[in-house]
Nucleic acid binder design. Structure first.
Length: 917
RNA sequence: GGGCGGUUAGCUCAGCGGGAGAGCAUCGGCCUUACAAGCCGGGGGUCACAGGUUCAAAUCCUGUACCGCCCACCA
C-alpha cells in the first residue's frame, strides 16, 4: 500500500480504533507477567467530555500504551460515575422545562427518567473517550450504580456500621436549600463576596434604655438567637455578664454569656448566638445548653411552626412566615432601622459558602444525618503517604493531603435526594412510629431518634417486635462514597475475584488536584479499610486545563473549547501530543490553539518522512523483514553511527521521562529527535548514501532508514497512536499492530561520543557556511569555493565529508590548508579550531562582510571579557570545580583565536578597500 | 488568617547553581525530486522588583508587588 500524499486523520482514526477493539488488544494479556493496572477517574454522566477529561485520559493512555509495549500485562478499567446531585439536577432541570417537578413524578418514575438520561449521556461520553483513542479494556467497563458496584456499596456500608464507624445523629450540617439536601464540608465552596456588617442594638430586659450592640452579617438569623456572648475578660462587658437581653422584633429574652471564642476586636465585641444556623454558635450553644431554633424550612423560608412550637407568639411571626431568608433579611433590617435598633451599617467582605453543584448559598441546618467516624480511617491513610507506600507526584501535593487529613471532620454521607444508592437501613413502622413523619415529598422523614436496622438485604421483619412493616431509609449516599470504593469494587469486590487478586493494588492513579480530597483521599481510606492494602502506588496529579488567558474554562464564560472540535480540526494525535507536551508538572495548562496547529505540522512531518522512506523502499528488492537488523551492524557510515547514537540517547531519555511522569519531556525529546535530527540531518545525509555518492551499499541505507523510522514510530506510539499505526501498517500489512510491538531499548554500545563530536563539528561547519552564504546574499543554488585552514586531523575529516559539504552547503570546490597566508577579501567564520573562508569577488559583499565581521568580533569580545574576568578571579580558580575552570580556559583561548582570525580577515578587507578608494 | 504555585523572547511555555531555550508569530532568502502544513538563515530577553548566600544565581534564601489556586468558625 502507498502512503497518500497528505495525511488525513479523519479517515483513519475510527478505522484503527475499531480494529484495536475487535482484536482485543485493550484486554490484558494472559499469563503471569508483571502487571500494570489503573482505574479511570470515572467521568460523571452529567454531560460531555471536557478538556480536563481529555488531558486526564491522554496521560493515562500514554502510560498504558507504553507499559503494554514494554511487556506488562496492562489492565485499564473504564467506567462512569452516577454523580448523584449533579445528575439529579440536570434531569430536574430538563423536567422543569416541561413544567414537571420531580415530586409530581414521584420517586420511582423520576429515577426511571434519570436512568434514561444516564443511558444517553453515558454513551456520549464513552463515544468521546473512544475518539481520544484510549486503550482501556471495555469488557471491564463499570458504572457506580450497576449491580455489582451497588452490592459493594451496601457491603461497605454494613461493614462500617458493624465496626461502629457509622452513626446517625442530629447535627448542624451544610444544607443546600435548592437541592434540598445535606452536603459534606468539602462540597461547600467558599467564595469571598461583598456584604454588610450590621450593628444592631440589643436592649437589656431590665432597662430598655440601655443596649448592647452586636455586629452581624446575617441579621435575619436573629429570629433564632438564643443568647448574646462576650469575651469573659472584656472590660467593657465584664460586669454585665449574666444580664438578660430582650431581642428586638421577637421580644425573646436571652442571656448574656461569656465565652473566650468571642473576638474582642471584631465589631462591637458582642456576638449574637444562633445555634440553629451557625457552626460556631452551635458549639457555643452546646457548651451553654442553649436552645437551638431551626428558623427555616428545607427551602430556607422562615418556618413559623418553629416559633409556635416554642410557645412564642406575636404578630411578627405572621409577618415573617414563609419569607425567603434574603427577603427576611431586608425586612428585618428595615424594621430595625425604623425602630431605632440599627446602630450602623458597614461594608464588609465575607466568605459565603455555596453549593458546589448549584452555587446556592448554603444554610447551616439542623437535621439528622448519617456520618462516618473518619479519624480511624484517616490516620492509616495519612500514614501510608507519609511512609511512602503511596507516592503523590508532584510531591508538593502531599502537604495539602496531610493538612486536610489531619483536620478532617466526620463525613456526612446521607443525601436527601433520589438518585444514588439508597441507604441500606430500614425502620420498623411500629417501633419507630413516633419517629416517622411523612414529608412533603412523600418520603418519610426520620427524626434523630429513629432506630435503623442495617443490613445487606431488606430485613423481612423487625428483630425487636417482629413487625413486618419496614421502610427503607429514604436518603441516598454521597456519590463519593461509591467512588471511594472504585479501585476494588470495579475489580469484583466484595468477591475475591481473579481480577482483584491479579490487579489490586493498582499501579498508578492519574487525576486532577480538584478531586484530591473528594476522591483520592476517600479511595485511600476505603482501600485500606476494606482491602487492607493501598489502592494504588503512585498518584500522579496533573494540572488544570485553562484557556489561553489562563481562565478556567466554563460554560458561563463561553471560553470552553470542545475536545471533539479540536480533534476534528487538527486530528487526535496532534491534540494528544499538545496535551502531553504542555503537561509540565505542577503547572496549569493554557491551551493555545496555534500550539495544536504546530503539532499538527509535526504529525505531517512524520507522515512525509515516512513517505520518503517508503519511496526509497518501493521497488527495491531488498525491502524489509528479512530478519536482519542493520541497526546492529558493526560497520556503519558516520551519519548512521551518529543517528544511532542519538536514537539511543533519545530512547534512554524518553523512558526516563515517562517513568517519572514528565510527559512534556517525553514529548519534546521525541519531537526534537524526529524533526531536528532524523528529518533535518539524517534524511538529508541519507540521500547521498541512497544514490551511491557516499558509502557502497544503498540497500543497507534503505534498510537502515526504515528501521530508524520503525523506532521512531514505536517511540511515538503512546502519544500518537493513530498515525503511528497507520504508517506501521502501511509498511507491512502482514505484521501485527504497533500496539503489541516491544518498546525500543537502547544497547549502550550504540552511544558513540566520538561520532557525535565529529558530526557536531561537521554540522557546525555546514551551518557556518550556510550562514556566510545567506549573509553575503549568495543564491542558494550557487556553488561556492571554500578554503579551510586548521589542524590536519580536522582537515582530513572535512575532506572526507566533501560530498556532504556539497549537498548540504553547496560547497563547490574546497581547499584544505594547514598553513600559509589567509585569503584576502573573504567572508570568514571559525568553527572549533577550523577557519572557513569564502572568497568574495564583489565590492558590495566586501562592505557587508566588513560590517558583519566587525559585529561578530564585538560580540565575541564581550564574551571574552566575561570569561577573562572569571579567570582573573583567584577565588574562582581556587574554589570552582576543576572541570569548570578548564572549560573556561578553553573558551577563552577559543574566543581569542576566533577574534584573531576574524580581525585579520577584517584587516585584509580594509586594505583592499583602501587600495580601491 | 494560613498554605501552595506562578511572574523567562510579541504569544504559549520548558529550563531550576556554571556560556539564556522551544513552539507559534516576525523578518530575509528559497517550489533543493519526503514535506511551502516545508527548507535555509536572521532579529528579538538587565529571566517581575529589592536585598542576601556563593568564586559563580533565571536557577538557592529573605522580603515586596502583581496574578492564580487550596484550606480556614472571626460573627
Amino acid at each position: 500500500m502507498q502512503l497518500s500524499k497528505a495525511y488525513s486523520h479523519k479517515d483513519i482514526e475510527a478505522k484503527w480504533y475499531n480494529h484495536w477493539m475487535k482484536s482485543g488488544l485493550f484486554e490484558p494479556t494472559k499469563g503471569t507477567g508483571a502487571c500494570f493496572s489503573m482505574v479511570i477517574p470515572p467521568p460523571n454522566v452529567t454531560g460531555s467530555l471536557h478538556m480536563g477529561h481529555a488531558l486526564n485520559n491522554t496521560l493515562q493512555d500514554i502510560l498504558c500504551r507504553y507499559k503494554r509495549m514494554d511487556g506488562y500485562r496492562v489492565l485499564w478499567v473504564p467506567g462512569t460515575d452516577h454523580a448523584g446531585i449533579a445528575t439529579q439536577n440536570v434531569v430536574e432541570r430538563q423536567l422543569a422545562q416541561k413544567g414537571i417537578s420531580r415530586t409530581q413524578l414521584g420517586r420511582e418514575k423520576f429515577i426511571e427518567k434519570v436512568w434514561q438520561w444516564k443511558q444517553e449521556a453515558g454513551d456520549a461520553i464513552l463515544h468521546q473517550l473512544k475518539a481520544l483513542g484510549i486503550s482501556c479494556d471495555w469488557s471491564h467497563e463499570r458504572f457506580t450504580m450497576d449491580e455489582g458496584l451497588s452490592r459493594a456499596v451496601r457491603e461497605a456500608f454494613v461493614q462500617l456500621w458493624e465496626d461502629k464507624l457509622l452513626y446517625r445523629a442530629e447535627r448542624l450540617i451544610n444544607w443546600c436549600p435548592r437541592c434540598k439536601t445535606a452536603l459534606a464540608d468539602i462540597e461547600v465552596v467558599h467564595e469571598e463576596s461583598d456584604g454588610n456588617l450590621w450593628h444592631i442594638r440589643y436592649p437589656f430586659a431590665d432597662d430598655p434604655s440601655q443596649a448592647l450592640v452586636v455586629a452581624t452579617t446575617r441579621p435575619e438569623t436573629m429570629l433564632g438567637d438564643t443568647a448574646v456572648a462576650v469575651h469573659p475578660d472584656d472590660e467593657r462587658y465584664k460586669n454585665l455578664i449574666g444580664k438578660k437581653i430582650r431581642l428586638p422584633i421577637t421580644g425573646r429574652v436571652v442571656p448574656l454569656i461569656a465565652d473566650p471564642f468571642v473576638d474582642r476586636e471584631f465589631g462591637s465585641g458582642a456576638l449574637k448566638i444562633t445555634p440553629g444556623h451557625d457552626f460556631n454558635d452551635f458549639e457555643i450553644g452546646e457548651r451553654f445548653g442553649l436552645d437551638k431554633i431551626s428558623i427555616f424550612d428545607a427551602e430556607a423560608r422562615v418556618d413559623a411552626a418553629a416559633f409556635l412550637a416554642r410557645g412564642e407568639s406575636g404578630e411578627w411571626i405572621e409577618r415573617y412566615r414563609g419569607k425567603d431568608r434574603f427577603d427576611a433579611r431586608k425586612l428585618i433590617v428595615a424594621e430595625l432601622k425604623e425602630n431605632g435598633f440599627l446602630e450602623k451599617t458597614a461594608v464588609h467582605k465575607l466568605a459565603v459558602g455555596r453549593c458546589y453543584r448549584c452555587q446556592t448559598v448554603i444554610e447551616p441546618y439542623l437535621t439528622p444525618q448519617w456520618f462516618v467516624d473518619i479519624k480511624p480511617l484517616a490516620e492509616p491513610a495519612t500514614k501510608v503517604v507519609r511512609d511512602g507506600k503511596i507516592q503523590i507526584i508532584p510531591e508538593g501535593w502531599s502537604n495539602s493531603y496531610f493538612a486536610w487529613m489531619e483536620n478532617i471532620k466526620d463525613w456526612c454521607i446521607s443525601r436527601q435526594i433520589w438518585w444514588g444508592h439508597q441507604i441500606p437501613a430500614w425502620y420498623c413502622k411500629r417501633c419507630d412510629a413516633a419517629n416517622l413523619i411523612t414529608g412533603p415529598d412523600g418520603d418519610y422523614l426520620l427524626t434523630k431518634d429513629a432506630m435503623p436496622i442495617v443490613g445487606r438485604q431488606a430485613p423481612q421483619h423487625c428483630p425487636k417486635c417482629d413487625g413486618k412493616e419496614l421502610i427503607q431509609d429514604p436518603d441516598v449516599l454521597d456519590t463519593w462514597f461509591s467512588s471511594g470504593l472504585w479501585p476494588f469494587s470495579t475489580l469484583g469486590w466484595p468477591d475475591n475475584t481473579d481480577d482483584l487478586k491479579t490487579f489490586y493494588p493498582t499501579s498508578t492513579l492519574v487525576t486532577g488536584f480538584d478531586i484530591l480530597f473528594f476522591w483520592v483521599a476517600r479511595m485511600i481510606m476505603m482501600g485500606l479499610k476494606f482491602m487492607g492494602e493501598v489502592p494504588f502506588r503512585d498518584v500522579y496529579i496533573h494540572a488544570l486545563v485553562r484557556d489561553e488567558q489562563g481562565q478556567k474554562m466554563s460554560k458561563s464564560k463561553g471560553n470552553v473549547i470542545d475536545p471533539l472540535d479540536v480533534m476534528n480540526q487538527y486530528g487526535t494525535d496532534a491534540f494528544r501530543f499538545t496535551l502531553a507536551a504542555m503537561a509540565a508538572m505542577g503547572r496549569d495548562i493554557r491551551l493555545a490553539e496555534d500550539r495544536i496547529a504546530g503539532y499538527q505540522n509535526f504529525v505531517n512531518k512524520l507522515w512525509n518522512a515516512s513517505r520518503f522512506v517508503q519511496m526509497n523502499l518501493s521497488g527495491a528488492s531488498d525491502a524489509r523483514d528479512d530478519g536482519h537488523d542493520v541497526l546492529f551492524d558493526d560497520k556503519l557510515e558516520l551519519a548512521d553511527r551518529w543517528i544511532r547514537s542519538r536514537l539511543a540517547s533519545t530512547i534512554v531519555e524518553a523512558r526516563r521521562a515517562i517513568e517519572a511522569y514528565r510527559f512534556n519531556d517525553y514529548a519534546n525529546v521525541l519531537y526534537r529527535f524526529t524533526w531536528h535530527e532524523f528529518c533535518d540531518w539524517y534524511i538529508e545525509m541519507s540521500k547521498l548514501a541512497l544514490n551511491g555518492t557516499v558509502g557502497d551499499d544503498p540497500a543497507k541505507s534503505r534498510k537502515l532508514l526504515s528501521e530508524l523510522l520503525d523506532q521512531i514510530l514505536l517511540l511515538l506510539h503512546p502519544i500518537m497512536p493513530f498515525v503511528t499505526e497507520e504508517i506501521w501498517q502501511v509498511f507491512s500489512d502482514t505484521r501485527k499492530s504497533i500496539m503489541v510491538q516491544p518498546y525500543p531499548t537502547a544497547p549502550s554500545t550504540w552511544i558513540d561520543a566520538d561520532t557525535e563530536t565529529k558530526m557536531e563539528f561537521l554540522m557546525g561547519v555546514v551551518r557556518a557556511i550556510r550562514n556566510l552564504r545567506t549573509e553575503m546574499n549568495c543564491p542558494p543554488g550557487k556553488e561556492v569555493k571554500v578554503i579551510f585552514y586548521g589542524q590536519s586531523a580536522d582537515l582530513s575529516f572535512l575532506s572526507e565529508q566533501r560530498p556532504y559539504l556539497r549537498a548540504l552547503a553547496r560547497v563547490g570546490s574546497a581547499e584544505f590548508l594547514s598553513s600559509g597566508e589567509r585569503p584576502r577579501g573573504a567572508a570568514t567564520s571559525v568553527v572549533g579550531a577550523t577557519e572557513i573562508y569564502l572568497p568574495l569577488d564583489d565590492l558590495v559583499n566586501l562592505d557587508e562582510e566588513q560590517v558583519r565581521l566587525a559585529k561578530e568580533v564585538g560580540k565575541i569580545e564581550q564574551e571574552l571579557v566575561r570569561v577573562q574576568k572569571k579567570l582573573g578571579n583567584d577565588d574562582f580558580l581556587s574554589k570552582a570545580k576543576e572541570e569548570v575552570v578548564e572549560k573556561e580556559r578553553e573558551k577563552a583561548s577559543q574566543f581569542e583565536e576566533k577574534i584573531r582570525t576574524l580581525r585579520s580577515s577584517l584587516e585584509k578587507i580594509r586594505e583592499i578597500q583602501a587600495g580601491r578608494s
